[in-house]
Amino acid sequence: MLTLTLLAGCSNPEFVVEGDVLARVVIPKAAATRTVVSLQTADDGTSAYVTSEKTDVRLLGPVYVGAFGNLDTVSFDFVHPAMGPTLSGAYGDTFPYGGATVGRLDFACYEAVACHVTTGRFTDYDALLAHFRDHLGRPVLDDYGVEVTSGDVMEQWCYRYFEATSEAEMSFIGEDKLSFTEEGDNFVADVVLAHTTRVDGMKLWAFMDAPELVSDQIEINGSFTTCDAGSGREAYGYGANFREGGSFFDVLNAPSTYVQYGDWVSDDSAVVNFDESLVQTNDVTVNINFSYEAE
């Protein structure tokens, strides 16, 4: 009798419904191809903004991936997670089973870049500084309003700000922390949706919050709809008093609030299957292949 009990216990250990869901995110290089703005100084000392088209993984904002009971292909101009009853009058209540990001919003030491930096996009400090200068047209300024031109200077400032001692502690830079790899015309990344409610036939949905990038309003370049400037750690310092910023908490619960023109959204093809023991049985690819543009 005891043996039977033990055997039964092994066949379905703990009856845990939640678990990791694995998927691959594919986003076309077109999503990282933008008309960038660069501030260039001529020999005579005059400066001007110059635009050009570039493809660069640094132009990908945070990618939000969620698991849902189903997707809604009717209510919006893009595929959207199915919603529950909307009592408040606002679209939302998608009841996600779980979620994850491919690159998340992070704070990169200077107030000037709060809410403007995504993890998994920059190899080092210089790559980050170059992105702001050569893609967004707004060089990184330190807390005294002086342009930061050297990665070494930024490194020292970051060490001081975070009381850190190594690059490994900086989640927004690092060759080994890059999210995406190139595959043909796409950037691809593996993602784990941890502690997700596993339901056979559930669907994955994702969108990329593209950074603002315009040539006539440089000051908004690099900002993200999903970043809440009023959240995050509060920084106090000599002459500094600001919030580091962070993602809004309901991005997957009310995605239509955050998906804006210029963002890229997945289709409805990513279905996840599980066997009776809730072991994932298929490889899942989330194709973020729809460019949401104004008509």
Partner: peptide, 16 residues
């Protein structure tokens, strides 16, 4: 109880 398209039940308040 709201049952979503995946068959998962969610306890939901319809209080206004």
């Amino acid at each position: 109880v709201y049952t979503d398209p995946g068959g998962v039940d969610h306890s939901l308040s319809y209080s206004q």
